[in-house]
Design a protein around this nucleic acid. Structure first.
Lengths: 200, 200
DNA sequence: GACACATACTGAGGCACCCTCAGGTTAGAG
DNA sequence: CTCTAACCTGAGGGTGCCTCAGTATGTGTC
């Protein structure tokens, strides 16, 4: 019950803080451009810092990804909480899933990392993913309780569908010209999981 | 109409042939174990061949993947042709998609390569992917003509759904212990795209 | 302002992998 | 047996990962 220890705790010295922020900014840009496999040495250089400094703040690639996406995931969690009491649970679920898909596909390779973090404790992103899982599950349950979504759908399955949609979207990044089947994908999925026979 | 030129044409000399086969066998094993990013130098060593020899036969990683998966894709194409005249088009489509998902997720990273090859000509796997696209599209059209699948679903969308399912399955490879949400994913998708109101 | 030291930074270096290419080897046709 | 096109080899230059011994500096304290 001690909870997860602080991961990549904010540094204390001012120069450390500056570098931490610079690295994070460079990482976000690099991930967006080159995906989660972007060169760490390049990120360090872009941040005006030696490679050792990067490793000091972020001991692994996964921890850097975690830091770069933490805020977005947190937003997702709070958004889920806000939507939990919505009068239209199906709309709430749809809206939330859209946002989730968008965030999951911020850059190429993210979905894969998050999907693994979802169930693998000991991963930097696990805590956030777990919180998000709960948020999504609540929205699902609400929609099911209202009889709007098929009752046999489990939260894990919901996240599989969500991840699939995000992966498809990821495929068309960062090319702005490519097909992006994701919105359609999600709509198909959503229409697919709503109950068929409101009136028997 | 000249068609695509032979990619990674079979070598002519007996020793070349032997090596070609040995490399392919080693590659299949390595991809299965380590995914599409498996070390090529390792594959060469496993095949008892110098790295240069591997590159002689397979100028790029993509061409090696193509060769390693060509037969499975070809099976998929012929299977689609055989199912095209089925009296139960929905069952035919389901069966084919199941096989496709299974093949697409033979090893980690394959779906990504195939999904790109689908629309990017100049990729080693493009020819096969294109043929497969046609086969799947035919099955879809048949099911739609029978009124069994929603009429507004395009072949591209079908392949997005299929790829999503394969990706989810890929995530649980090669660990035999992991969750494999794929069968359920595909069933949800299939139930989702069938027409809702057979009887108005 | 000077001191002490925890905190932070540096970058060379060992390792793995990618891919190329100049030079050596050999299968197999004639 | 000869000859040559086909084939094979593996060193080498490049990129990236990650570590760690040595060095620098921010900051609390007096």
């Amino acid at each position: 019950m001690t909870g997860t220890p602080h991961i990549a705790q904010r540094p204390r010295r001012a120069d450390g803080q500056r570098n931490y922020d610079a690295i994070l900014a460079a990482a976000r840009k690099a991930f967006e451009a080159d995906g989660s496999e972007a060169s760490l040495e390049n990120i360090a250089a872009q941040a005006g810092v030696a490679i050792g400094t990067l490793y000091r703040h972020f001991p692994s690639r996964a921890s850097l990804v975690e830091a770069a996406t933490r805020d977005g995931l947190a937003d997702l969690v709070t958004h889920a909480e806000r939507l939990a009491s919505s009068p239209d649970p199906l709309r709430a679920l749809s809206e939330w899933m859209e946002q989730a898909v968008r965030h999951f596909s911020t850059f190429r390779g993210l979905v894969g990392i998050l999907a693994q973090s979802m169930y693998d404790e000991g991963t930097p992103s696990h805590a956030m993913c777990s919180a998000m899982h709960h948020g999504g599950a609540d929205l699902l349950r609400a929609a099911q309780a209202a009889g709007l979504v098929r009752a046999d759908l489990t939260p894990d399955e919901l996240f599989d569908l969500l991840s699939g949609a995000a992966w498809v979207r990821e495929q068309s990044l960062p090319s702005s010209s490519g097909r992006d089947g994701s919105p359609r994908f999600l709509r198909l999925v959503l229409e697919g999981i709503t109950t068929r026979d409101r009136e028997p």
